[in-house]
Design a protein around this nucleic acid. Sequence first.
DNA 1: AATGAATGAGTATTCATTCAT
DNA 2: AATGAATGAATACTCATTCAT
Lengths: 180, 180, 180, 180
Amino acid sequence: MKKKTGDPKQRLLDTATTLFYNQGYHATGINQVIEEAGVARASLYLHYESKESLLLAFLNQRHIDWMAGLKSFTDEASKPKDKIAAAFDFLSDNNEREHFRGCAFLNILSETTEKDTAVLTVIQDHKKDLRAFLGEILTNEKQLIKDHVYLLFESAIVESQLYRNQWPVQEARKMALGLL
Amino acid sequence: MKKKTGDPKQRLLDTATTLFYNQGYHATGINQVIEEAGVARASLYLHYESKESLLLAFLNQRHIDWMAGLKSFTDEASKPKDKIAAAFDFLSDNNEREHFRGCAFLNILSETTEKDTAVLTVIQDHKKDLRAFLGEILTNEKQLIKDHVYLLFESAIVESQLYRNQWPVQEARKMALGLL
Amino acid sequence: MKKKTGDPKQRLLDTATTLFYNQGYHATGINQVIEEAGVARASLYLHYESKESLLLAFLNQRHIDWMAGLKSFTDEASKPKDKIAAAFDFLSDNNEREHFRGCAFLNILSETTEKDTAVLTVIQDHKKDLRAFLGEILTNEKQLIKDHVYLLFESAIVESQLYRNQWPVQEARKMALGLL
Amino acid sequence: MKKKTGDPKQRLLDTATTLFYNQGYHATGINQVIEEAGVARASLYLHYESKESLLLAFLNQRHIDWMAGLKSFTDEASKPKDKIAAAFDFLSDNNEREHFRGCAFLNILSETTEKDTAVLTVIQDHKKDLRAFLGEILTNEKQLIKDHVYLLFESAIVESQLYRNQWPVQEARKMALGLL
DNA sequence: AATGAATGAGTATTCATTCAT
DNA sequence: AATGAATGAATACTCATTCAT
């Protein structure tokens, strides 16, 4: 029993966010969630139908927060090229703050089977939104350039998680800007 | 109890390969492994000292097989550019055969914590080998081009897993070849 | 699933008491405890955090009960010498009721390693209490006499367990009374 | 795999001796025995019918060695009283050498059920031999004195194990000598 | 809205023993 | 005489979920 501020539902979501993201979904037990949230076991099921529904809540919230973070970085720039640079800087920033745990959605994707359609959909929707977001910045570019930037952006996340190092972000940033 | 051919150690590795790759590591229980391998519970621990050591055996074997598969594709071509094209074709082929389950190493990476150093090392070594392999094909290119191809290659795997679709491989292939 | 009366926590403790005392700690599996207590496996861990903590609960309860039994015997007498005689009679009574299983604490001590500090402490504390209890009865005797009685008392327990016979209690009783 | 000198049968016995005595019988697994003896699993069953028969071999050997050790101490003295003193000194010596693990036979007794008749018999025979040995030293004393010394001797072992301290041996020695 | 108690099925791992060589 | 492989049953413990209050 650790956290005690905020309402139980929020505490559960916050705790699940930390644990699912840092340990993985299957490696995180409900016990640990309720214990660290400081909430009774049954209270979890009062607010969330199941462990999976807590996972979905986590992913949905993460989507909102992450996209907002990205937007706040790109909003600082005005020209498309600068916005793209800012987007990569957002990744650097994330890596520092979150110790190179990579993309929450891709991580969960790895634990996801064809059967988990609800989860898969949330993940795909997140990435579609990201792809669209980058595409809108590069509205005057051809589709292949848009996707090229998107794919570099994705590798930057994955590879910096893999190597626990910022070089993939920095290199991918340089490559992406070189395309524009 | 399903499989019955080959020696138990190999059957265990084969079964673990299938299950860890398709369901994830934590989602796969030892019970399922031994049952589908048709082997007694204790026999698993006769050959592998722990579940994690079975995971390592899987990753090590996968590394060998996957690199061999990649090499057999690139060996078909002679010019660097054609070899890179063949490398992407290998990914397409994998996606078809393995139903878009993506990269075994990156999937396990998602379930891996800073503590699992042995696992993390195997994963990183695999990717370093892949990066070196591509780098050698592009021996006359600058480092940034080499890495550019590598990063596109990586996103091609991840994104086709994500969308359950070949388009990321095909687009990344086109982008990569355009760089050369 | 046998017992069904009383709350689960008490049933578990009662069952553990019987089994740990009569079969030994390591020879008793959690399965047998829950089965004979008529309780679900997880319920054990709801009330006791581990098998060792159940052992500690058993020892603590045993200490209370055993000391109470001893006191109820000695309270029947008024003179020190008679109280000591009554103390040995308590041992005879125990041997009959408990089929010469000896001292719960010394039995567990045999299964205890230097590492099990919590268990060792409970055992030592029990014996210190017993030694002090006898010492208070013999408040006017010299320390060596007090300890002499204590040591005879201890052998009486151990040796009657060993021989499955009351003679050590009866002889030790005679020797102890002879000292006073 | 540790030990490598002596024949396998002896190595097994030596290892079992150490482990059964220091950890207890049930707490010691066959795996640990064969591993530390440096012997194949099946070799154990070649020389010993079962784990219990290895236990019996240990107890029988221990009886011989222990009685020999005791005799070598008492043989140093000529008068009965001095021999008894020497017997207690043997206990002190044991405690030092064996880190207060107490009596191998009484320890195993604690793990023994009414059913284990073979084991129980070996234990009882050992103690009967010890009692007779002390009785012969005190051949001119009355039976009650003989047993008195025997009982003090027994508590000295048990209580020094319990407190991890030599005081019970020293006090019991003094008491015993006072009786003669 | 919130909780403590309860559970059946599952976790990874080890048990003592046997068998084919 | 000696061993490596194999096993069915058990080990202590945790899982996600439900229920009565």
